[in-house]
Amino acid sequence: MFVNLNEAIQLIQEGKILHIAADESLLKQLPKGKWIAGTTPYFITEQGGITCKDKLFVNEISCAIDYKTMVYDSSNILDMTKDAYPNGMTLLIIPFASDVAVHYAKEAPNSNAIFMNPTIGWISGYDLSTDSSAKVYDGVTGESYGDKAVALHISLPEDKMASIGIVNIFNIDENDAKIEFMQDSLSVTKCLVNGEEVILSDYIAENNIDTRLPLVADYNSVLVNVSIKSVSEENKTVDFYAPVFSGKEYRFARPVSDYVESFNKHLKGFRDVKPIFSCNCILNYLYGELDDKATPPFAGPVTFGEVAYQLLNQTLVYAEIISN
């Protein structure tokens, strides 16, 4: 729900377990309580996409029978599953451009036990027209962090279970050039294109590739995007918002002519989903011009990265609670 400051304060004072997304100016006014939060001024509400600094997006986690908040840095974030409840879910928020975000992006997919606990979340951000920075909040202590992640671990009743899903509007053509990387990295110079070593920035320029399109890898039928952050033709580097991994085959996504139409087409299969949390990527919001456009049944913060177990890009992620 998209609420004003007083309404958010009231929910906290009623003792609700909450996930909150809002601009920092609002988050720092919230009283202590059973909540975690991350910064963003961008949202896709039930009424449509909006940039807003005077309202908060709040998810009430009413299905939880118990909860705890934890703060993690690079040294212990992969131990997060040890803190999780035996039957529950973890909502994770990590500040953009922090060491812990980079560490989680690179190491989570290779971590043992990461898939034993449903984990969903996002990378908090800031107003791109300012020189602000991303923050996360632990509502129990009232502390905010720019260099640590915050998690809300919830426990579910025995007859319920959390299920994590994604919506990815991008697709690949198996006949397109196959791109492979020699190591796991957030920044690359060389790669293999159809087995031939090339400089990726040159390849992108020579082939006039639209860098708003992500690289896409197939994870056992799940298409996982890696978005391009920047290309330096001078330094011959390509930087990504999430790491590329060695041993995976990537292809550039097929162009999407109409984001909204494409979202609507993909969302048809999700009409019956009742998400307790969802978020969508800022690159979808910006490139897709989703201002005023809704993506039912999903509404939530617009984020600088999405977490569905591991870090994803240009993807809508959601969690729902299902009966066993």
Partner: peptide, 22 residues
Amino acid sequence: KYESTILGLNLLITRLQKQYST
């Protein structure tokens, strides 16, 4: 080859295949 509708299972299969292949 098996493709599930459960995201976690698909990601797990991918990781275990990579882990074993190396």
